[in-house]
Every structure is written in structure tokens, then in C-alpha cells.
Design a protein around this nucleic acid. Structure first.
Length: 324
DNA sequence: CGAGTTTGACCTGCGC
DNA sequence: GCGCAGGTCAAACTCG
């Protein structure tokens, strides 16, 4: 069984670390007692003031600590929720693989009729993370599909991906991280939109082919049909990311049937915002500590790339330094 | 100049 | 055998 699917995922991380409370700490807020100590003056009254100020400060720090703990637990809760949703997605994939294996004996025409319009992916520039909806469209069939050459090779897998594009986008390009070379275009009988034929050009010996055609029912939907398996790793992570930054690339999760491990490429990139990208992880390792550590590292690096976050952090740190 | 795209011609399989 | 349709080839063309 082989499949390749694209996920429309919409989930925003809202990290409110209450950094404003740090930023608002101006030097004038420094307790009087502390200022007096800086001046080298000591008396009983000042010691009393200092004690009460320190107590107040301690209370304030406690409150701040409590708020931060709450925020942290909220973030952790979001992370757990997302992780469980990711688990749902991967289990859905295996379920669909099983279902599609049973359906694979159907004739091609019957399969074409079975295509569901609603199971499409939105590519509108912003990547939304919604693992609960059914925007994952997987159509996969074994070698009995369409082509006789495929029939001769039982290991050749066919999978179909539906991708929604901008109405203004007339190109037949589905960005999936691989490098494709177009070798033909044909107008088919049942669809006025031409079908484009692509070969994987990353490796000369790579047998994978891709057909891309607009849906006859909904021209804004591109139907990409993949045949075969790549005999090389996903060529360029950077390319995928670059494409994502342009807002034209879907979140892609692809799997290869012959291989016991599945390659999961999750790119939750959103333009001008924090990014979370997990590339090249095996979906069976999602629960592993290494994967989770990698996820946290990715989140951390995403936050550090966010100028807003770094400036807020810098303001908080400089505020602290000014105070002490 | 090389790599990628376009496009008409050609090949092959299938149904009648 | 013939016609049709899908798939592929390759020369011409485009673009960086």
C-alpha cells in the first residue's frame, strides 16, 4: 500500500509569556530601600522599608511565577493536544490504507466516480493546522489502477492527492518537496483541462511519475497522481521550506508503502509568524523522546527567529539588569 | 549555454 | 482492422 496525502492543518500557537510585565519594569520602580543602600546610607527606618519592599517584591515575584507557570502549563497542554491529534492523523492514515487496500480491486472508472469533491486541501498561502477535519485526502490504489505497465509491476503504487489552489493560479504545479521535470501535456477526453506529465528529475534513475490535472468538477482543485516510489531521499528540505515560505506549498505528509518506515514531513510554516517545522521524522518515532526533543528544539528555534519574541526577551532581560 | 518547458508526432492498448 | 484515448518522445523554444 502506498499513499501520499496532504494535510490542511490549522493551529496557531499563542505564546503569551507575560513579557510586558518585565518590560514595564522601569528603573524608577526600584524599591526605595535598595536605592538608599546604593547611596550607602543605613538607618533603622530604611531597613524597615527595605524589608517591606523586599516582601512586596517577593510577593510580586511569586505572582509572576504563578502566571508563568500557568502559561507554561497552557503551552504544554496545547502541545499534548497537538501530539494526540498528530497521532489521530497517523492512525487515520493506516486506517485509510487498509480501506484502500480493500477497495483497490475496483475498476478505474468506479474509482474516478468515488472521488469526493470535499476532500481537498487548501493552499491559500496561510497554512492552517486542523487535524480534526477531513481535509486529508488520500487516494491510494495498488497496481490494478489505470496503467497496464503498473499492472506488470505489483510493487508500483499509485496515490492521488487533491490540492486546492488559488483560482488565479493556472499552473499545474504541486509543490511536494521533490524536483519534477515535465515531459508532456495532454488534453484528455473527460476533462477540458490539460493533464501534465512529470518525472522525478532529482535522481535520473528515479522511476516516479506524476500526473497533474485540474478537477473537471472544481477547476480550483488540482489532482496529482503519483506512480511509483522514489529511490532517493526527499531531495531538498530547504526547497520545501522555501516553497512553503512562498505560501504555495501544502503541508505534506507522504508515505511509501514498500518501506517499513514512513516519511513524515510536517511544515506548519506561516508567513511572518513563528514557524514549527518537523522534517524527515519517521511517524513511528513521533512518540519517542528524541522526536519530542526535536520538536521542542524546532519550537525554540522558531521562537528565536521571531523578531517580536527576541525583542520582547531583550527588553525583559535589560529591564532586569537595569533594576539590579 | 544548459536546464526546463512546450507541443505536435508517434506508440501502445483497448473496445467495437 | 480501425478508431480512439492515454502516454511518451523529441525537436523547438524559453529563460536565467
Amino acid at each position: 500500500m502506498g499513499s501520499s496525502w496532504i494535510v490542511d492543518a490549522s493551529q496557531t500557537f499563542d505564546l503569551d509569556l507575560n513579557l510586558d510585565s518585565f518590560r514595564l519594569q522601569a528603573p524608577k520602580d526600584v524599591p526605595r530601600g535598595v536605592q538608599i543602600n546604593f547611596m550607602g546610607v543605613e538607618n533603622k527606618a530604611s531597613v524597615k522599608d527595605e524589608t517591606s519592599d523586599l516582601k512586596a517584591e517577593l510577593e510580586r515575584m511569586k505572582e509572576e511565577n504563578r502566571r508563568l507557570t500557568e502559561t507554561l502549563s497552557a503551552v504544554y497542554e496545547n502541545y499534548i493536544t497537538l501530539q494526540s491529534r498528530l497521532g489521530d492523523v497517523t492512525s487515520m492514515t493506516s486506517e485509510k490504507d487498509t480501506m484502500l487496500a480493500m477497495l483497490s480491486s475496483r475498476k478505474r472508472k468506479a474509482e474516478n466516480n468515488r472521488e469526493v469533491k470535499s476532500d481537498v486541501v487548501d493552499i491559500d498561502g496561510s497554512i492552517n493546522c486542523n487535524f480534526n477535519n477531513n481535509n486529508i485526502n488520500v487516494e491510494s490504489s495498488s497496481s490494478e489502477d489505470s496503467c497496464k505497465k503498473i499492472k506488470e509491476d505489483p510493487k508500483t503504487m499509485v496515490s492521488r492527492v487533491h490540492v486546492r489552489t488559488e483560482p488565479s493560479d493556472t499552473s499545474l504545479v504541486v509543490k511536494d518537496g521533490y524536483q519534477w521535470r515535465k515531459y508532456g501535456q495532454k488534453v484528455t477526453r473527460d476533462n477540458p483541462c490539460p493533464r501534465a506529465y512529470f518525472r522525478c528529475s532529482y535522481a535520473p534513475a528515479c522511476p516516479v511519475k506524476k500526473k497533474v490535472q485540474r478537477s473537471a468538477e472544481d477547476p480550483s482543485v488540482l489532482v496529482a497522481t503519483y506512480e511509483g516510489e522514489h529511490n532517493h531521499p526527499n531531495c531538498t528540505k530547504s526547497e520545501t521550506r522555501a516553497a512553503s515560505n512562498k505560501g504555495a506549498s501544502p503541508v505534506l505528509i507522504s508515505s511509501s508503502s514498500a518501506s517499513p518506515t514512513k516519511t513524515v514531513t510536517l511544515d506548519l510554516t506561516r508567513p511572518n509568524s513563528s514557524q514549527v517545522a518537523v522534517v524527515g521524522a519517521h511517524h513511528r518515532e513521533i512518540d519517542s523522546p528524541e522526536f519530542q526533543r526535536h520538536l521542542v528544539e524546532q519550537m525554540a528555534s522558531s521562537l528565536t527567529r521571531d523578531p517580536g519574541f527576541t525583542s520582547a526577551l531583550a527588553a525583559a532581560i535589560s529591564g532586569r539588569i537595569m533594576r539590579y
